[in-house]
Design a protein around this nucleic acid. Sequence first.
DNA 1: ACTTGCAGTGCAACTAGTTGCATAGCTAGG
DNA 2: CCTAGCTATGCAACTAGTTGCACTGCAAGT
Lengths: 185, 185
Amino acid sequence: MALEHAILVSLAERASTGYDLARRFDKSIGRFWTATHQQVYKVLARMEGNGWISATHVAQEGRPDKKVYDITALGRGELAQWIARPAEAEAARSDLAVKIRGASFGDPAAVAEEVRRHRATHADRLDFYLANEKREFPDPAALTGHRLHQWLVLRGGISLERGMIDWFDEVIAALAPRPTPEDRP
Amino acid sequence: MALEHAILVSLAERASTGYDLARRFDKSIGRFWTATHQQVYKVLARMEGNGWISATHVAQEGRPDKKVYDITALGRGELAQWIARPAEAEAARSDLAVKIRGASFGDPAAVAEEVRRHRATHADRLDFYLANEKREFPDPAALTGHRLHQWLVLRGGISLERGMIDWFDEVIAALAPRPTPEDRP
DNA sequence: ACTTGCAGTGCAACTAGTTGCATAGCTAGG
DNA sequence: CCTAGCTATGCAACTAGTTGCACTGCAAGT
């Protein structure tokens, strides 16, 4: 289970509220681990119970009070141990792959259309990552420590998106009924 | 939820027992959707309740009796509808990415070592897929129908593995403490 | 004036998936 | 002879994650 540990990494970088964490899981780290805010709050409560994190109540004016969580020594220990613990390669899960595989049992043209849609989404994501990289890591060769590690994960996102886009292009080319002369009005 | 639909695709291709399905989910389709046998049996029971599949009890000698499931007309309808229903891009989840991101809070050299291990696993998988492709799909240009779709999913696996391996190489190069002269005895 | 959206936390009920166990007979290897 | 592994199905108890709802109060747009 990596959500707990993803949260520990986030908190080790910077103390945050559940709200902030939930938003961050929609963004940077979220490329490799998502969580809804409900899930985040639930897990934070458990982690506090474990003594991995501690909360500070912060009163605010004009907006709701908040609880800022920080990682404890125990949490740091757990994180280091988890990082050291070898893990198995996890299986990729893809609805779209299942649909492609089953295209003959539905409408292959519609599947091609959906693949096209996904291709566009992933192309946007790729652009977003590349823009991020240019802006935040203009000189990768000079990176060290946790900035280097952040960059590496971003690179992973880039690699993955590229792989998917290449694949989608292959699928579209194979599934798309070539526009025939009759398609012209 | 794609497990049900992945099972429908499998059964549409060929009637099978829960046991066979579970094994198949360790293999071909399993590259994009895994399930333990317990999960498969549970879902099969629900699907039979829905009328999507029907079971035939087959007595055997020397080995346990089995229940062969086949897809029903209702199941085919559901499958076609699901394939037509657009879905959102699902988030990739990767423990390893979280570990890389948090490498500074553990032992970066150990993380590099783990990435190396995963690289080896994925390289093996890639070889396995490529061998499969050569053996089962020697002439991709001639493929049509569900053989084509099977091939496309295999191509997806290949693309994905390649993307990961590239990324792992980048990570290893960046994290690995270069062997210094002192490392020589 | 009214709606939308943001900041902020959380509960309740659900679905999906995992882990551990049980059972039973056959086959193959040490 | 004994152990390990395959075929075959399934229950029980658990953990993880999703969906829907609730509450407050401010700011900004229509």
